[in-house]
Write a protein that binds this DNA or RNA. Sequence first.
DNA 1: TATTGTTATACTCTATAACTATA
DNA 2: TATAGTTATAGAGTATAACAATA
Lengths: 150, 150
Amino acid sequence: MEKARLRTSPEEALDAQIGYNLRRASSLALNDFAVEMGDAALRPVTYGMLALIDEKPGIRAAELCRLLGMKSANMAPLLAELDERGLVERDDHAGDKRVQMLALTPAAKEAMPGWRQQVRRHEDRFLHRLTKKERATLLRLLRLIWTDED
Amino acid sequence: MEKARLRTSPEEALDAQIGYNLRRASSLALNDFAVEMGDAALRPVTYGMLALIDEKPGIRAAELCRLLGMKSANMAPLLAELDERGLVERDDHAGDKRVQMLALTPAAKEAMPGWRQQVRRHEDRFLHRLTKKERATLLRLLRLIWTDED
DNA sequence: TATTGTTATACTCTATAACTATA
DNA sequence: TATAGTTATAGAGTATAACAATA
């Protein structure tokens, strides 16, 4: 009997790799985000910054970096951009002159609910083939990958 | 009775957005891929190209672009790089002089099983908190997002 | 006219290093 | 010494536009 030819096992195929599928799914989501939020001139990164500042007003820039997994070197120009656009306030910390305390401006606070609704529309669109239960499962599994919690 | 203050609903929080969690999980996976495959000087994109050429020898460059969701303008220099490194052969198509048929060189064919094993180690590492069943579920849900199949 | 593949170019995101000012 | 924030710079990934060769 002839020896079976060595071939790639199904679980080693590119299509079966979770990393590859994560990248493709994330890429599609990023593109759809740009479609939905192009009018607001918000990208995923800048929207994430605004959303987190909204949820934690007075947050320090360093803490924002930590929570979003960004380097402060990359955060700085983005904060400057949001400041110039009148969306973010950077206030001095009372006890530590190195620290910047971040908050949304009244204009951004007013716009935020609408932006959150747009993002919700965007999520409903690119996740339309997943049930509510499947979305909850996906959320849990993704958080198992990149957070230490749970 | 005072009117309840408008606040962000839990499902609109940044942490609850699947797009955000996709991005964070994918980012972690990309970093871990670089750690594992740094020695081989293969990045996710170039590895994906090699893996698919391996699985479909003789595939056309345009078809590789389509399957990987890449623009041919971005594919061209990467194929040239893999060609120069002696990993990919570009052969003329008999009936259509515009077409390039792609195949792995003998050297790449020999190295590929080891690289696939490395990628498997990488996946086991960044997915260590997910059971086998959870990984299968995650794979299915991710494919529901970005493919038209199933 | 449409398709295959190439080149040039620009933009976003991310990484490192060097710097300041404060603690 | 360590931390907060800034600036400069480089790399990787992706986008569009213009092009040559071929169908």
